[in-house]
Amino acid sequence: MDLSIAALLTQDGITNGAIYALLALALVLVFAVTRVIWVPSGEFVAFGTLTLAALQLGKTPGTVGLLVAMAVVAGAMEVIACVRTGETRRIPRSLLVWVGLPLAIAAAVYALAPLSAPLPVQVLATLAAVTALGPLMYRIAYQPLAEASVLVLLIVSVAVHFALLGLGLWFFGAEGSRTPPFSSFSFSVGAVHVNLQSLLVVATSVLLILALYLFFGRALYGKALRATALNRVGARLMGVSPNFAGSLTFTLASLLCAFCGVLIGPITTIYYDSGFLISLKGFVGAIIGGLASYPLAAAGAILVGLIESFSSFWASAFKEVIVFTLIIPVLLWRSLTTTHHEEDE
């Protein structure tokens, strides 16, 4: 291996790592606020790529059908909940939020599909459609048992993962898709060959991470999510409802996953079931951060990307094995160094 190959592998590793980092942040965020281990995050990544690919082919993406179906279910659940608690006055507003908004997004994407709109517009449509799935899924699958234990929520997550796999096959079909790169421009710095595409991916990830940092540090809603993660009872007593925090969290997390899907599309072919493996790599990153620390999770994800890219060069048949074996020393180190402490007041 010479320098140029090492540089290429590093560039590949950091590019993939930047995508895994977004995923890892989404996983840490979801776990911290709602205690859900978000297994189906990978499906959101895959749906992101498949939606953009369909839009580029001028076809209606399966996301439209999925949005309509989930909006109908969520709307029905809201109406039943309102009738049960006797708050029939809230039904119109609930329907507007849970049915009207997703249907409007679905309609817009449907109308946009045959127009062969410019790429940025298609990307925006993809992000909107996939992001809208997040809160709907929270409303349908997680909110009814938000108080359940972490284990129950994990079981629900696995169920949602399989359900979305089936629905993904139904709505998107079995064919794989790959989106064209945003830019094929490349330049050389000495012996090192740099793709503008890779730079774009890394820059997008960095910008998103910066935006998240500002949101959680400055915005009241970001602070409310942090407060919920730190102390659920305390947050409720301030008027932060766990349902509100949960759907806001899932909106943010699915936005991150949609970005992952858009960014990963030009790198690898994505099938309806490709998401799981990608999300597992995000998980390894998140676990390195103990499912709690955002910077460590992002750094861990970059490490996963680098290890993956170098092991694909040295032992390409074992590249997944090597990446997932990484979790064992990490867990050992974590279990030896973490002291279990009671939450202090």
């Binding site: 730190l230 009872v233 007041e345």
Partner: peptide, 24 residues
């Protein structure tokens, strides 16, 4: 309600805790 256990947000600053008091 100011609960017996206070239920503060320990890992957040005093000012952020106060800001959240006005969340409603």
């Amino acid at each position: 309600l100011v609960p017996e256990r206070r239920e503060l947000f320990a890992a957040m600053s005093v000012e952020d805790n106060l800001a959240l008091g006005a969340f409603a």
